[in-house]
Write a protein that binds this DNA or RNA. Structure first.
Lengths: 224, 224
DNA sequence: CCTTTCAGTCAACACTTGTACACTAATAAT
DNA sequence: ATTATTAGTGTACAAGTGTTGACTGAAAGG
């Protein structure tokens, strides 16, 4: 009855708050709810591999059996989160590239930007750090693939720089992997400390910056 | 009956295989069984925070309730494993220090030694990598404390080196943390790949070595 | 020798877990 | 308008979970 009214409303004009939704839209929505619920739980101290299907369903406001309409498994849920995470990282990369001073990787602003991005996507990074070493082998592999992509993109960006002319391709791969690892490595510290000590973001930025500068110095002196 | 025989045996002479055990010895033994069981499970693909008390007890050949005679919690078990892990790391450090060419951190032999040590203590390192980012906050903190100790020891070793004369204490701390992180970072890769591809140990060694040399170059050029 | 201590056992509990199955109601397709 | 599809519900069950309390038997202490 009520829905019928809404339906008419949709046909005539779009109501924003309680707008009509197609079946696919609604499905996509609860699917997102499930993924968000899982992310929220991991971001709240639980370990992804120890949270239950039922817990996720409950937090998503859905009955447990409904979970199966979207994922066969918690692992599949995890893989889908990793897909989203990949998108997020690409967005990060794209935004960073557009910013001025990007090619000055040693600029404080770059690291600061990353740190803020982490804070803005706390749950994703929590999930990532957690699953990177603590997830099932399948999930670990998936995460590492994303990180590898990240490192490869970095290679493309710095390959043309004449400062690195003396570094061959294989070594440049390793260098970029080192850079990426260094940035991501202490992200978990940042996330942990952040809750009780918001100023830690400065410490993190400063420390990471020094490490990157040191690596940079090494790279300039490197002869393959 | 049978035990009485053994008891007499102990009084007269020590039998090695089925020797008499004091109550404390036996307790320490099953305690170790529990810890080993947990380590074995984590080393076998399970996540520490998702293995159950009962599972551990079963694998240790002990009834679940017996667990409580040793630990109140799985988390306490974890903390005790971390204590052992700390000992293991100290042993690693000590042995490394005694070896010649230790102060030539860029020697292939050093990294190779570490890699072999990892393989020999597979479960411990698996546990460490897993809990470092995936454990409960308490466990994470405990692991990081151990790693910090490791880095601090490294500081003591390299502080006297004249190559680092230009680096002040604060920066040297950061440098050593970077070195330690770099070594530990890809240990999980080593552990993962090892099973299917035993030659990966060479790849790991070579890559890590290059990273360390690069950092080294950077450190030599560094002016605080 | 007798008594105390205590690591390990056994049985039972109240829950939570993943999953199967039948069902509903609203959307999509005809 | 009728039918088919399907996201989400409800019920049910077997298996596993952490924890309790009372019990046992051998070692430790007197």
């Amino acid at each position: 009855m009520h829905t019928k009214t809404v339906r008419i409303a949709q046909l005539s004009f779009q109501t924003n708050n309680e707008r009509m939704q197609t079946r696919d839209e609604k499905k996509a929505q609860t699917r997102k709810s499930l993924m968000d619920a899982a992310l929220a739980l991991t971001g709240n101290g639980s370990n992804f591999s120890s949270i239950s299907l039922r817990e996720v369903a409950k937090n998503a406001g859905v009955v447990p059996t409904s979970f199966y309409r979207h994922f066969t498994d918690m692992e599949e849920l995890g893989l889908n989160i990793i897909d989203d995470l990949g998108l997020m990282l690409r967005r990060l990369m794209r935004t960073a590239r557009q910013s001025e001073g990007y090619f000055d990787a040693l600029a404080r602003s770059s690291v600061e930007f990353y740190a803020n991005y982490v804070c803005a996507n706390k749950n994703y990074f929590f999930f990532m750090e957690q699953v990177k070493t603590g997830g099932t082998p399948v999930l670990r592999k998936a995460i590492r693939k994303e990180l590898k992509y990240f490192a490869n993109e970095l290679v493309l960006d710095v390959r043309p720089l004449k400062a690195f002319a003396e570094i061959n391709d294989a070594d440049l791969d390793i260098l970029c992997q080192l850079i990426v690892d260094t940035v991501f490595e202490n992200t978990i510290d940042l996330l942990d400390q952040l809750e009780e000590n918001p100023d830690y973001i400065d410490t993190y930025t400063e420390h990471t910056l020094k490490k990157l500068r040191l690596i940079w110095l090494g790279a300039m002196a490197w002869r393959s």
